[in-house]
Amino acid sequence: MRTKYIVAGLVIVAFVIFGAISFMQNNIEYVSAKGAEKTNRTVQVKGTWMKDMQSYYDPKTNTFHFYMVDDQKTVLPVVLAGAKPNNFEIANDIVAKGRYENGVFQASEVLTKCPSKYQSKTGPQASSQAATSTLN
């Protein structure tokens, strides 16, 4: 009877450790642009898109190239695997997920944070004005 509990306990402990290690390994930390340059782990960098700098899509590699700047004003060149993300033009903030390699941030995903994605802040009047202006 006791051995059964010990075996069950050990199995549970093994799973917990396995889960915890996987969790730590795959947890994507938020770091600054400087922090991203120092590590080869997959991290997230929050910042804004530098609209005045060069940005383009390269169809040969299916990558989108742009520059972002973080809160500490560090400029980070980003190469995103994929096309220009949704909401890119109007995003207040962007979050790039990936790792720093050979002088650029190789992003696997770029999330865009928009002021009001699914909820209106202004209410109906503002929007009905907008509707009439497009009709004119």
């Binding site: 396995f18 996987s22 969790f23 795959n26 947890n27 994507i28 930390e29 938020y30 997959t42």
Partner: peptide, 15 residues
């Protein structure tokens, strides 16, 4: 950590 961060989806496959 006092900072919310998500997990990479490879975690789910691995575990």
């Amino acid at each position: 950590n006092g900072k919310a961060s998500a997990i990479d989806t490879s975690y789910y496959i691995k575990t």
